[in-house]
């Protein structure tokens, strides 16, 4: 069995963090899931674990529409912090936005792995895990 994957779910709407963590657990029973409800909390988690390969998340789900610091602003910060990450991470934009402009904007961030429409499906979680395993 591969090592346990650590997920960090970032969405201001608790219900999506709940749904996504349930769906991840249905596919990946060993998943370690951390849910936060704002970009600043997410940054805290990232920065506090920057020295620990063990605790650092493998996979991030980031919502775009969030109060205070939105998903893109968080991505900008993460892009700057990327050189300090102890291991490669996969970042997925998970959103209900139908705007092509959001998709195009997400593509401009090299650290973004993919763009997924809410709610994330089982199949998508399986694909994410496969991609991570082959990375």
């Amino acid at each position: 069995m591969t090592k346990k994957l650590k997920y960090l779910l970032i969405d201001d709407e608790e219900v999506f963090n709940f749904i996504h963590s349930q769906i991840i657990r249905l596919t990946d029973e060993f998943a370690e899931i951390n849910e936060v409800r704002s970009s600043s909390e997410a940054l805290e988690v990232i920065q506090n674990n920057a020295s620990s390969k063990e605790n650092f998340p493998d996979i991030l789900f980031i919502d775009i529409n969030m109060p205070e610091m939105n998903g893109f602003e968080l991505l900008t910060q993460l892009q700057q912090l990327a050189p300090t990450f102890p291991k490669p991470i996969e970042i997925y934009i998970v959103t209900s936005s139908l705007f092509e402009s959001d998709r195009l904007k997400a593509k401009t961030y090299p650290i973004v792995t993919g763009f997924i429409e809410k709610p994330v499906s089982n199949q998508q979680v399986r694909d994410i895990i496969t991609k991570k395993a082959s990375a």
């Binding site: 219900v15 999506f16 769906i23 529409n65 209900s96 139908l98 705007f99 429409e117 809410k118 709610p119």
Partner: peptide
């Protein structure tokens, strides 16, 4: 569109 779709998609997720 975001505010309409967001709760809708959460219901969809919960249904699944």
């Amino acid at each position: 569109s975001h505010d309409l779709r967001s709760p809708l998609l959460s219901v969809k997720g919960l249904l699944s």
